[in-house]
Design a protein around this nucleic acid. Sequence first.
DNA 1: ATGTTACCGTAACGCCTGTTACGAATGGAG
DNA 2: CTCCATTCGTAACAGGCGTTACGGTAACAT
Lengths: 195, 195
Amino acid sequence: MSRAADRSAQGETLSRAVWSVLAEQGLERLTVRAVAAAAGCTTGLVMHRFPNRRALLLHARQMLHRVTRVRVEALEAEAGSPRAALRAVLRQGMALDEQTRQESIVWMGFLAAAVTDEELIAEHRRNNRAWRERIERLTAAAAPEWTAERVATVTLGLITMTEGMAAYAAADPAAFPAADQERMLDSTLAAYGLA
Amino acid sequence: MSRAADRSAQGETLSRAVWSVLAEQGLERLTVRAVAAAAGCTTGLVMHRFPNRRALLLHARQMLHRVTRVRVEALEAEAGSPRAALRAVLRQGMALDEQTRQESIVWMGFLAAAVTDEELIAEHRRNNRAWRERIERLTAAAAPEWTAERVATVTLGLITMTEGMAAYAAADPAAFPAADQERMLDSTLAAYGLA
DNA sequence: ATGTTACCGTAACGCCTGTTACGAATGGAG
DNA sequence: CTCCATTCGTAACAGGCGTTACGGTAACAT
């Protein structure tokens, strides 16, 4: 394997270690040593790959965005209709299983970390705006007769609902089972006339 | 002033200092020293009022719940109709101004801190369940003809939407102005038949 | 006025943090 | 085989953390 591929693969391993620590131990225990331990290496390697801790977190944050974008684009391509695409893409944004539940916790951890970090908050805003534009595009395709304003308003309702649902279910999975989440999504799409 | 009142007032001052640090500096800088500085005292006083840092955070978290409950009950009492009450209570859960925006940031900070803290997560779940029951009660009053299942599903849609809206607007207030938030809330209430 | 008690600021402790410096190992080039 | 560059583990550093111990001070009771 080439040197460049090695470096890239290590960056990926370390970013996944960041997610793992963030999901299992939370932001307060997200230290360079904890990440190194989760990645099975030492702090020396971490600090050779990244100039400092903030750069490590930023890389992990950006990689999280890329991974979810790939998954969402696959769902969108597989869907049989615009409305099916909209539903499938919104669905994966909730916390339906252990995998997506952990992603929600990681997501909230990055958001909490972004309060003090200018680069992290900028990344968060970029991603959120791209996400909103994606859902606006899917909503417009699912309801071609709607005005742009109607599309924007309904999109805002849909993205905030799935985001909030993920936060609730991540913090209390027993109280918000997957079936309830899906029923809620379907009834909301129906209420908006997107069923 | 009596001793007991003094102690209680100090606990309140310190809890407000916790919120202040959490809103302005984030979870990573939420140290005992930072809280003491924000409260205008020394770490000695903090550690005399609370046995440790976790107890301080838990008290601040519980007080946040009490304060918002009082505000919500006042809004509910002032409202002229069940539907007005539902709307007013949901409205204050979004991030419409600097005050509620900071509350959302504090809320997310506590949620991120709860990942590692059993007591904090238990408190969070208690509060969320009480919040859901409140909105279920208001929704049932606003639509008396609905079945319990319909009430539950719509309630879940409403609380997740406002929660998610608060998160989006707290992180990027420029992209999500108050008017858009309110329009989204009203159009969703209308879509559910609660306008 | 004096003794007693509660209060709380000061200073220190040990631990853990991010970061840096150095040296050993590794692997390709000549 | 030898040399050199790269890689990365080890160990240390200064600084900040939560927590503890101690001493002075102010308020109350007698």
